[in-house]
Design a protein around this nucleic acid. Structure first.
Length: 516
RNA sequence: GGUGCUUUCGUCUAGUGGCCUAGGACAACGGCCUCUCACGCCGUAAACCCGGGUUCGACUCCCGGUAGCACUACCA
């Protein structure tokens, strides 16, 4: 019988959602949508000491911004979870886990251990490569070595304890991974993992994960490669519960690596190399840090999605641009790479550039206006002196030069603010001995000009330059400096067209008054 | 240290035994266009980790090694 596809993204709320986590969520989402299945979001908050306020809301907002929709569990439109398998926050599922811990204990698949963290630490220092497993558990303080009375006594006293999984040694455990094929390890290398801690009456990841995935009827576990080594342990847990026949299929994704050097991508790399590692800006209330986000850096969500999708997955062929719809159609786990992908921030910018180019001039003009960064330079006036259609035209002139909307202002500033100072380098290279004389002559020609269209100006100025053999570049570059303040910007007649006769002439007059 | 995973241009990757003189994209470099700066177009440089095998033939399959990464917590 074909099981309904149900996948989950299960982050722990310990801070902002890492970009690698975003990719994991994306792949889960693509897989779910492609198979007409469900995408769940579960919060794995079983470590009360690492909880960060606001992290959970951050996660749901980030996924929402990116267009990764949640069908069940915690999400923006249902902060406490929606669906039939709740609650979806593990801290709210204590009672459920306790039953299963008891089941394991009753069936001798787990045992109670009283060793304190200090005692364990001491052991690790005394014995190299100490591992709490079949070879050592009989020398430790637990329900296997203590008498029944003493265990009871300690529990009565309220001694802190943990429940450990009893791993049978020397058994080969095979995990069938959808990306990597069969992975086999020997159970002897596994330790007796802590499943439950009395200190906060909460299970650890391993137990909560298995119980929840089973209860929530998860069909496929798609997660990061860092979980591959513990996957056999998870298989053993499914067996211990007698759930092996409904065990989900596993797919372990390659990791996102640092752009330079080695190791996996971390928050530090973003700070160090100057790019965001998080989808949204995050203000960490716990440690007071602020982390930059893709959204605030001016990225379009579809660019982030496209970029991330291709970091670890690639279809046959040369297609680079993928919409979410295309990804849903074409994504497949067997085309996910096996090796880690170095994070190439430059390519991310290029993707944003591509999506920016797909926007209409009008849309871009609105986005440009919304950034408000023109305000500081124009003295915080509430409106610009151009109608919106002209602003769209201006944006259209320069959009192919930028990767982000936020970079637009530096390309168009001179349209809004007349240059008062002139770029040194441009002057040195383009303002010649005869520039003042040429521009003075040109000014009188322009003053007499009625028709201000690009064609008319072209027909007026070019023959004049040619007749006098002034040199096209010579005159035009000087003219450009008068209008722009530097040797940059779009075609000169597009500039005069936007500026209009009056402003153009005013700028030339001003330039002639300060430049020699 | 132990266990596991991985290994094609600087980076992301295509490639599933002959289509490979190894393709695309980002980045780099050069040229064209041109009144500037860009864009665009054209082009250049750039890779099969090493060693064995299997085969008529290996980037592709097998084995060994190197290297990288992950895990090895009362964190996930």
């Amino acid at each position: 019988m074909e099981r309904k596809v149900r996948v989950r993204f299960a982050p722990s709320p310990t801070g902002a959602l890492h970009i690698g986590g975003v990719r994991t969520a994306l792949y889960n989402y693509l897989f779910a949508r492609q198979h007409g299945g469900d995408m769940l979001l579960r919060i794995e908050d079983t470590d009360s000491t690492r909880f960060v306020p606001g992290a959970e809301q951050y996660i749901t907002e980030a996924l929402h911004w990116l267009g990764i929709e949640i069908d069940e569990g915690i999400c923006v439109d249902a902060p406490d979870g929606k669906g039939e398998h709740g609650p979806y926050r593990q801290s709210e599922r204590r009672g459920i886990y306790n039953q299963y811990v008891k089941y394991l204990l009753d069936n001798k698949r787990a045992y109670i251990a009283f060793d304190t963290p200090e005692e364990l630490e001491k052991k690790r220092q005394e014995i190299p490569n100490f591992q709490y497993d079949a070879s050592t558990r009989l020398q430790m303080v637990n329900s296997l070595t203590l008498s029944e009375e003493e265990v009871h006594q300690r529990l009565e006293n309220g001694d802190q304890f943990v429940v450990r999984f009893l791993v049978e040694p020397n058994e080969n455990v095979t995990v069938h991974d959808l990306i990597r094929g069969e992975v086999t390890i020997n159970s002897s290398i596994l330790d007796d993992k802590v499943l439950y801690k009395s200190a906060d009456d909460l299970p650890t990841y391993h137990l909560a994960n298995i119980v929840d995935d089973h209860l929530m009827e998860i069909s496929h576990v798609i997660r990061g490669e860092e979980w591959l080594p513990s996957a056999p342990l998870h298989v053993l847990l499914y067996r211990a519960f007698g759930w092996e026949d409904t065990m989900p299929q596993f797919a372990h994704l390659p990791l996102l690596l640092k752009p330079d050097g080695n190791g996996k991508l971390s928050k530090r790399d973003g700070d160090r190399l100057g790019f965001p590692v998080f989808p949204l800006e995050f203000h960490n209330e716990k440690d007071g840090t602020i982390s930059s986000g893709y959204r605030e850096s001016g990225y379009y969500p579809e660019a982030v999605i496209n970029f991330l999708a291709l970091l670890g997955w690639h279809n046959t062929g040369d297609q680079e641009m993928y919409s979410m719809e295309e990804l849903i159609q074409q994504f497949s786990l067997d085309r996910v790479s096996k090796s880690g992908a170095k994070f190439d921030y430059e390519k991310g910018k290029w993707f944003n550039h591509q999506y920016l180019l797909r926007r209409s001039d009008e849309e871009l003009a609105e986005e440009f206006l919304a950034t408000g960064n023109w305000k500081q330079a124009t003295g915080a006036q509430s409106t610009l002196h151009y109608p919106q259609s002209t602003i769209a035209k201006i944006i259209g002139l320069v959009k192919e030069r930028v990767n982000f909307v936020s970079e637009l202002w530096e390309q168009v500033d001179f349209f809004f603010v007349a240059p008062k100072e002139f770029d040194e380098k441009s002057l040195k290279k383009r303002w010649k001995e005869d520039s003042h004389a040429r521009l003075t002559e040109m000014l009188s020609l322009l003053e007499a000009q009625e028709d201000w269209s690009a064609e008319a100006l072209d027909a007026l100025i070019l023959p004049w330059i040619e007749k006098n053999e002034y040199g096209l570049g010579n005159v035009m570059n000087a003219f450009r400096i008068c209008l722009v303040g530097a040797a940059r910007g779009p075609h000169i007649w597009s500039i005069t067209d936007i500026l209009g006769k009056e402003e153009t002439l005013a700028r030339v007059r001003y330039a002639l008054s300060v430049l020699k």
